[in-house]
Design a protein around this nucleic acid. Structure first.
Length: 830
DNA sequence: TGATCCCGCCAACGT
DNA sequence: ACGTTGGCGGGATCA
């Protein structure tokens, strides 16, 4: 009865591992519409299979599965089923394969990141949709987001022009500016605060009217931000309310650009984007829809490697969030000019275009709904202008469509290359996972030797640093690949091995830089392993690392250099116990927090490249190159970052606070040196003051090599001791001595085992972080990493029991200890 | 379960 | 009218 599924069509889409499979070619979805019949054995089989093995498992597993299935089914012809099953698998593209993210990758692979000015290519939606084998509707989702970034612009009906990333810097700048003008930062804080209140105010809490003043509302509504040069046509062409995706996408990006940790959780974003942040308004459905849209946007942004998914763990549980991994947006140098025109009009860029136009576009509708963009008449005018312009613009360059997706010249474009990995990841995934697991089993040393992992996928190694990142980035979004860390883990050994540990610490920086993003990169472990073997603390050890890491290495080599003298001193001072404030004081400390901010800011000024060193993710360094940083610059920048990441200390401080920071709550007080929080205070103010942290972080960043050295030493010694994690999140204290923890974790970051442990302990750890050492910006570290580090005892993966809470009651007193009430921890996804 | 998010109906627009 | 865009949210998947 059931028409058999056209499994026949199976384009070996999923062929489990086709290394060569064209990443780009997506398995077309067999349009056959056969609804599988539930009863059919095949259908059942299909279901089972899908359920059982959505992803990639070894064939054996598959077979088993099939067999099982067949058994259940009563055996029809086992063999046949076998076949069918396989076919199904192949033909039945798992949902992931149809994901927007993957689709977007394919889409992006067709065009150069940086098309020569001359060869702007054109995009035909129909064509693309056909080639990618997806409904056009899906393409719209992608294009709309790209439009928001001015990576494409609509020319006409079905036609778009491809601009690549050339405009990205400007766009981001503009968006950042707008975001600032909109006070998004404040809005975020407000929302977080509210959330916080809600969470904690279990008892009759008075809804704080405090927050009421939402100056923000108006801000939330603003129309599409356009760039001067080109693309303002986009909005105009289709005057359709640019309500969502486009604008939403821009706003979403703005949130990243204005928030310090550059991490934005979906719910917060949704609330802000909804504009009505009125509490009551919590229109469930609306909120839900918003979230859905955000996922769509996030997927393409992820494909663009602008963001990366992470998870924030808080008391509640974990919530989805995204971390900006795109280029750091330079403080716009030229912004002053237009700003004056109108606060709302944030056309950072602007001079090129008549300001009026920009302004019109950027108007903020007073209240939500009827956001008017431009006056109709104006629109028409604009259109005509646009048309003219279009003609002019389009004419000049012959469109270069490098469509043939299949043959994307990888060599030519890194990004394209990246694509491959993404796809490959799929294949790899299965393997890598297994391998990893196996490795876990193995003794560390063995692992190291073992290094050459098949995983190391085809990764082209463009000398450029950027390339690696891209690859990595690509893979991640898909989610198919395990997070980079895990893969890395094998390389970096958590265990006590002294030698290993050293390696680790260095590695992290690197790992972050590249590994994080791509599993393939992570695999590079070999070099790392070697390094490890060396055991030298010196960053130079890292040299062995692949060329790709060159930049990073440089950075690593002498972190101190990059650091400014000013920075360091503060750190030292901070460390002093004196800094510890009592909770009561802490509560009062808002002002102090502010000061911290100022300090930070001042520091920023000193550091041209990295205003807040910790804030800037390593990844960005790589991106930076693209963005236009000179290598030199990158080198400089990177070091700092690396330092932050790599330093054990840094590792120790998992404070993810990124979000937390946003909300500054007086409750706890963080001194640069130590942060003490009383449980109560915590409860009161779960949020961390970022500013403070930042300052501390900054200082920590400098912690240079010397600290590292100490760290290493300690680590060694400590390892045996084993650090325990505090059982009680709130009350736990870490003895100063516990420093070891920091250390250990850093090395271990990546291990898979840790992951397990992490899960177990995550909760606890999440709540509090503390480290004897100077704080490190949590952002610097990968979310997961942080968590893991924290918890990991040197001894090994999950073995360590939670630290006995310092029964000593040091909590309040321990000067050395740093308490960070962490509401939220970041955990990277896998 | 909750987090994700594919899918495609169908309305708003354009032509 | 018909084709293009794309808001929207049900409900399937995934984790």
């Amino acid at each position: 009865k059931t028409p058999l599924k056209q499994a026949a069509t199976s384009h070996s889409v999923l062929t489990e591992i086709q290394p060569d499979c064209q990443p780009l070619t997506t398995p077309t979805k067999p349009k056959e519409g056969l609804p599988a019949e539930p009863w059919t054995p095949t259908s059942n089989l299909k279901m089972l299979i899908s359920a059982a093995s959505p992803e990639i498992r070894s064939r054996e597993q598959r077979r088993e599965l099939l067999n099982n299935t067949s058994e259940v089914l009563q055996a029809k012809h086992c063999l046949q089923e076998h076949l069918l099953g396989e076919e199904y698998e192949k033909s039945h593209p798992s949902r992931k394969e149809k994901s927007l993210g993957l689709l977007c990758h394919k889409f992006l692979a067709r065009y150069p990141d940086y098309p020569s000015s001359a060869d702007s290519s054109y995009i035909s939606l129909d064509e693309v949709a056909e080639e990618l084998k997806v409904e056009r509707r899906r393409i719209y989702d992608i294009v709309n987001v790209l439009e928001s970034l001015h990576m494409v612009s609509r020319l006409a009906k079905n036609r778009y022009a491809w601009h690549g990333r050339h405009n990205l810097p400007k766009t981001l700048q503009a968006l950042k500016k707008v975001g600032e003008n909109n006070k998004y930062t404040q809005q975020i804080q407000l929302i977080k605060k509210r959330e916080y209140e809600h969470e904690f105010d279990l008892n009759g809490d008075r809804k704080e009217g405090i927050l009421k003043p939402s100056a923000s509302n108006k801000d939330s509504e603003m129309s599409f931000v356009e760039l001067p040069g080109m693309e303002f046509r986009a909005a105009s062409v289709n005057s359709r309310k640019d309500k969502s995706l486009r604008v939403m996408s821009q706003k979403f990006v703005m949130l990243f650009l204005v928030s310090t940790p550059q991490i934005v959780s979906l719910d917060v974003a949704a609330k802000i984007l909804i504009g009505e942040e009125q509490l009551e308004d919590l229109d469930k459905s609306k909120f839900k829809t918003k979230i859905r849209r955000l996922y769509d946007i996030a997927n393409v942004l992820s494909s663009l490697q602008l963001i990366k998914k992470v998870h924030l763990t808080e008391e509640r549980g974990r919530k989805p969030a995204f971390k900006w991994t795109g280029p750091e947006v330079l403080p716009n140098t030229q912004d002053t000019k237009l700003e004056t025109s109108s606060t709302t009009c944030s056309q950072a860029v602007s001079e090129y275009i008549p300001s009026k136009e920009q302004c019109s576009k950027n108007l903020f509708p007073s209240r939500g709904k009827q956001s008017f963009t431009r006056h109709p008449s104006l629109i028409k005018l604009v259109k005509t202008i646009e048309n003219d312009r279009r003609k002019v613009q389009s004419a000049p360059t012959s469109p270069v469509k490098r469509s043939e997706s299949t043959d994307q010249n990888l060599s030519a474009f890194p990004s394209e290359m990246a694509q491959v990995p993404a796809i490959a990841k799929h294949q790899l995934e299965g393997q890598s996972k297994k391998e990893k697991e196996n490795k876990m089993q193995l003794s560390r040393p063995a692992l190291e030797s073992h290094l050459p992992l098949p995983e190391v996928v085809p990764r082209p190694e463009p000398s450029g640093s950027a390339a690696p990142c891209q690859q990595a980035a690509l893979t991640q979004p898909l989610g198919v690949c395990p997070s980079g860390h895990p893969s890395v883990s094998p390389v970096i050994l958590p265990h006590p091995h002294p030698g290993v540990s050293y390696a680790i610490y260095l590695q992290p920086s690197q790992a972050h830089t590249m590994t994080t993003y791509s599993p393939s990169v992570m695999l590079q472990p070999l070099p790392c392993a070697n390094v490890t073997g060396i055991k030298s603390v010196n960053s130079k050890v890292l040299n062995p690392i692949t060329t790709e890491e060159g930049d990073n290495q440089i950075a690593t080599d002498d972190p101190t250099k990059s650091l400014t003298a000013k920075e360091r001193p503060p750190a030292t001072a901070e460390t002093s116990p004196q800094r510890c404030l009592k909770r009561s004081q802490a509560l009062q400390e808002i002002s102090s927090i502010k000061r911290c901010r100022r300090d930070v800011e001042s520091l920023d000024t000193h550091l041209p490249f990295f205003p807040s060193g910790y804030l800037i993710p390593l990844t960005q360094c790589s991106h930076g190159s693209k963005a236009g940083f000179s290598d030199k610059e990158k080198a400089e920048v990177c070091p700092v970052q690396h330092t932050a990441y790599s330093s054990p200390i840094t590792g120790v401080i998992p404070v993810t606070g990124s979000e937390l920071k946003a909300v500054n709550i007086p409750a706890f007080h963080i001194t640069p040196l130590n942060i003490m929080l009383s449980p109560t205070s915590i409860a009161a103010a779960p949020v961390l003051g970022n500013s403070c942290l930042n300052s501390s972080n900054t200082s920590s960043a400098q912690i240079p090599s010397s600290s590292v050295l100490n760290f290493t030493l300690q680590h060694i010694g400590l390892i045996p001791a084993g650090v325990q994690v505090p059982a009680n999140p709130f009350l736990q204290h870490m003895p100063a001595s516990s420093q070891a923890e920091n250390i250990t974790h850093s090395s271990e970051k990546m291990s898979v085992q840790e992951e397990k442990v992490r899960k177990n302990r995550l909760q606890l750890a999440d709540n509090f972080l503390f480290s004897p050492q100077p704080l490190v910006p949590k952002e610097a570290q990968e979310p997961q990493t942080v968590t893991e580090h924290f918890f990991r005892t040197p001894g090994g993966p999950n073995t360590e029991p939670p630290l006995p809470a310092r029964s000593d009651g040091t909590a309040a007193t321990a000067p050395a200890t740093l308490y960070i009430p962490q509401r939220k921890l970041e955990v990277s996804e896998d």
